[in-house]
């Protein structure tokens, strides 16, 4: 065979040999160990540090919140509906990212250097799940935001850790009282609450037109000491359930009278602040739920006193406590003036 062909064939064999050696040399170790891939990569991929840690991780430090949450509707594990801590507060762990590659088991965790989110805009967060929308299953609690809360934040009324409201269920629903009997029994109230339930410069608030369910609940609260007022407690303890029902029926049927002492200017200023109230107490002071008090017909002084009582803690109420915290003294005055100026219908 001619020399050039022999050399060519030898050259090709040499190239082939070099190629084969290169293949063996450069084949990553652990390749083909389990199949056509780098066997070591399995453990590498598995080595990443998890970021989400589960609710139990939070319990040791936030036991109180955890207990609150675990008893509430956001932890109904029996039907598989569990909104874990990290759903709203974000992942409790972080993973280092060195350059572009991961497979790292290092990184800071909360509470070390990693701050978690305390959501401030509940309207945005809660509506992710609870805004009424086609496609959401019927069993999912949903609201039409505009009519449910206006511009109000959800946290004003709801505790996000246990959001279900208990107010409605505690209010005695059937009003079996008799207004005529109630009128007779109300003689004892006139001294403080005025004739016909309209109090003008008297120590007690006006009762005319007040929601019956609220009236009964309030009287009961005095009776048990949940609301503290020596005078009222004495009365309440002496009143039977029937008495409470009759009185409630009597006062609810009376027509309320607006206090005319409210200053016009302050009332106008209070309109803006009242946006925090209208979801429950209505724009005109008439509550949307009978378990909640009407504000219409009350004097400005009484309303200011009530708000301050909530603020100081002498009057209890989770929801109201949350709201009055956000009110300045001026706002308290103004919003009281606004509701005091609301007209009775």
């Amino acid at each position: 065979m001619p020399r050039h062909i022999v050399r060519l064939v030898l050259l090709m064999v040499a190239i082939g040999a070099v190629g084969y050696v290169a293949k063996i040399f450069f084949t990553a170790d652990s390749f083909y160990e389990y199949g056509h891939y780098r066997g070591k990569s399995v453990a590498e991929i598995a080595s990443d540090k998890p970021k989400y840690k589960g609710s139990e991780y939070c319990e040791s430090c936030h036991a109180e919140r955890f207990a609150e949450w675990s008893k509430g509707v956001h932890n109904k594990s029996d039907i598989g509906k569990v909104v874990k801590c990290e759903v709203c507060h974000g992942a409790a762990g972080e993973r280092d990212v060195r350059g572009m590659f991961e497979h790292l088991a290092t990184g800071v965790d909360h509470p070390n250097k990693l701050k978690l989110v305390v959501p401030t805009d509940a309207r945005k967060l809660c509506t992710l799940c609870h805004e009424k929308m086609p496609g959401r299953p019927a069993q999912q609690p949903q609201i039409v935001v505009a009519s449910h809360a206006g511009t109000q934040q959800c946290t004003v009324c709801h505790n996000p850790h246990s959001p279900k409201l208990n107010l409605v269920s505690t209010a005695p629903t059937p009003i079996r009282g008799d207004a005529a009997r109630g009128k007779a029994k109300a003689a004892a109230c006139v001294g403080c609450h005025g004739a016909e339930g309209v109090s003008v410069n008297l120590p007690g608030p006006s009762l005319a037109g007040q929601n019956a369910a609220y009236f009964i609940a309030a009287l009961k609260a005095y009776g048990t000491g949940a609301r503290d007022n020596p005078m009222m407690s004495a009365f309440a303890k002496g009143a039977s359930d029937d008495d409470a029902q009759d009185l409630a029926a009597y006062f609810a049927a009376l027509k309320c009278q607006s206090s005319l002492t409210a200053e016009k200017q302050a009332a106008a200023a209070g309109r803006a602040t009242a946006s925090k109230c209208i979801a429950c107490h209505g724009a005109d002071g008439v509550s949307s739920n009978r378990a909640w008090p009407n504000l219409v017909g009350h004097s400005k002084d009484y309303l200011v006193a009530a708000l301050r009582a909530y603020k100081s803690g002498s009057r209890k109420g989770n929801m109201m406590a949350g709201i009055v915290k956000t009110l300045s003294d001026a706002e308290t005055e103004n919003v009281a003036a606004y509701y005091a100026g609301a007209s009775c219908k």
Binding site: M1, P2, R3, H4, I5, R7, L8, L11
Partner: peptide, 19 residues
């Protein structure tokens, strides 16, 4: 490129043609 072989004889050419 010539691989050090300058063989252009008729025999070599015949081989080349076949390749």
């Amino acid at each position: 490129l010539s691989l050090g072989s300058y063989d252009l004889s008729e025999k070599a050419m015949r081989y080349d043609r076949k390749w």
